Simulated scan of single mutants.
Amino acid sequence: VNDIFIFNEIIGHLGLLELPFKGRSYTWSNMQDSPLLEQLDWFFTSTNWISVYPFTEALP
Rank of each mutant, 00 (worst) to 15 (best):
L36S: 13
L59A: 05
H13A: 08
F21R: 12
L40I: 05
V1Y: 14
S51Q: 07
R24M: 14
I50C: 06
M31A: 15
F43K: 12
N48M: 11
S29C: 14
L19Q: 01
M31V: 12
V1T: 14
V52I: 09
H13E: 10
L40D: 03
F43L: 07
F7C: 09
L40M: 08
F7W: 06
I10M: 05
S46D: 04
W49M: 14
M31T: 13
Y53T: 01
E57A: 10
S25A: 14
V52R: 06
F55G: 02
P54V: 00
T45K: 05
P35K: 07
P54W: 00
L17K: 10
V52E: 13
S51D: 02
F55D: 06
S51F: 11
D3P: 09
E57D: 03
E57W: 00
S34E: 13
S25V: 09
S29N: 12
Q39R: 15
N8K: 03
E57P: 01
D3W: 11
Q39T: 05
G23E: 03
V1A: 14
I4H: 14
T47G: 05
L40R: 11
S29D: 03
K22P: 02
F44R: 04
D33I: 15
D33M: 13
T27H: 02
T45E: 00
L19A: 11
L19S: 07
P20K: 12
F43R: 05
E38T: 13
I50G: 03
V1F: 12
L59W: 03
Y53Q: 02
S34G: 06
L16E: 02
Y53G: 00
T56Q: 02
L19F: 10
P54H: 02
T56Y: 00
T27G: 06
A58R: 03
E57F: 07
E18A: 10
N2T: 12
N2I: 12
W28S: 07
D33N: 15
T27A: 09
T47C: 07
S25P: 10
P20R: 11
D41L: 12
W42M: 12
R24P: 05
N8C: 06
A58P: 00
E57T: 04
P54Y: 00
L19E: 00
L40P: 04
